[in-house]
Design a protein around this nucleic acid. Structure first.
Lengths: 155, 155
DNA sequence: CTTGAAAAGAACTGCCT
DNA sequence: AGGCAGTTCTTTTCAAG
């Protein structure tokens, strides 16, 4: 954790909404000169707070009409099982996120597919055959609302 | 859905890894001139495939040490209930994502908090008191691996 | 921490193939 | 569709207060 002042927080809040803004625009909004705003962004990057910029894509328009959240319980949970499972699950291209969690399930996966038929194929051929998989629970995504980031809201 | 050729796909795959790359670099990697690469990016933005660029932040370094996935069942599920719930849940700053899903739960939430004590406060005071909330299931995030995006992997 | 200037580079435009 | 040349704007470094 690093020391952020109010201006850093405002800066991150602005960038959370649109990471493509030039330093001149950020500076104007914050009452800073363009180089001053630029240096703040640089400092946050070097401090490892700002890891990078990612694309926001329309999955539907790319042909991925189905997103499913999976909860996965492992049948066997030794150290080797976890590593085997993680390696195998990351090799499935449709798996967008693998979260190791504590609770009723051991892993939460975010999986994309062209449609439900395609998802069934992935589930039966790839997921259910993963090493050590026990119970699997699925939630099909209907709609989603995302917040720009934690600073803008919870500052 | 829109028509993308191979070059568009390669372009998106590159941008998924780092959305801050200049068109000159993208062009070099694709065997195109800088304006040609730039025009492709513009076209994808106007087509609505590329929605924008988002920040990738280190939540730990920002003081959000805890992330929890919540599954929420509603007790009453009329049209009004869903809308009431969605409006109320989005007003909680710690809630980073609200996903309306089909399955054992009605909603999946992604919640951040400073620590577990802070999370308990959010859960008891904000989440459990939401209109219409029935069963709630929690998974505490231990670690997470994200893919850069669907194109790089599943093309 | 700021300004202002200057150089380098990226974005954008128009014209041409 | 792509390339080239030129203009505008941003980024980046530097000198200095």
């Amino acid at each position: 954790m690093i020391a952020l002042d109010d201006i850093d927080r405002q800066l991150l809040a602005l960038l959370e909404r649109d990471a493509g803004q030039p330093a001149s625009v950020l500076g104007k909004a914050l009452g800073l000169s363009q180089p001053a705003a630029w240096r703040r962004v640089q400092r946050l990057e070097k401090a490892g707070v700002l890891l990078g910029r990612r694309l926001d894509l329309d999955l539907e328009k790319l042909g991925f009409g189905v997103t499913v959240f999976l909860g996965v319980k492992l049948a066997t949970k030794g150290r080797v099982s976890l590593e085997d499972f993680e390696r195998a699950v990351m090799a499935i291209p449709e798996v967008q996120a693998v979260s190791h969690v504590l609770g009723l399930y051991d892993y939460r996966l975010r999986v994309v597919a062209r449609d439900l038929a395609d998802f069934e194929r992935v589930l039966r051929r790839r997921i259910m055959t993963l090493p050590g998989v026990g119970d699997v629970e699925a939630n099909v995504l209907l709609s989603e609302e995302l917040r720009p980031g934690p600073i803008a809201a919870a500052g």
